[in-house]
Amino acid sequence: MTITVNGAAVSLPNDPRVSLLDLLREDLHLPGTKKGCNQGACGACTVLVDGERILSCLALAVQFEGRSVTTIEGLGMPGALHPLQAAFVEHDGFQCGYCTPGQICSAIGMAEEIRRGVPSHVTSDLSSETIALSRDELRERMSGNLCRCGAHNGIIDAIAETFAPKTALAEAAE
């Protein structure tokens, strides 16, 4: 029974109570994924499973056998940051930095959802194939990630700068 974390196969825990979050933080010593509520209410524990964003605190690790998990540590490290991580620094998209890994993983999952054309609560035309990358769309789609320091504007700025050009290009191509 293994699970892939940031490219490496690791064993699943024997205790089925262990959440994916605690597996990462306590067993694998990957504390970049944060615990903010342990009840699915804050988004700090967001990771990517096969590219899709989920909450690792509500995920029992055993459910994810054979799946591929990417955490913040797998995205980039100081000296070799992911463009979105660098944009967060540039736009001051954080203060204390605790919700930040979750915000970044969530935004990367979100970008893929937008590329796929998944609508949101604020999408006015559900039948449309493409999603306009408005600030409202970004704000609604990121609402599952709480930030108490109030870095919301910087977070949306960083995301918009990182992903908007690509989406604009995609729209232009259609």
């Binding site: 504390p31 913040i72 940051l81 991580q85 930095g97 605790y98 930040t100 970044i104």
Partner: peptide, 21 residues
């Protein structure tokens, strides 16, 4: 100036209280 501890924070490498084994 951008935060000097920014790269640590955005990569999840800034250690918080529950993260000292």
């Amino acid at each position: 100036h951008s935060r000097i501890d920014g790269p640590l924070k955005v990569s999840g490498s800034a250690p918080f209280a529950a993260e000292f084994p």
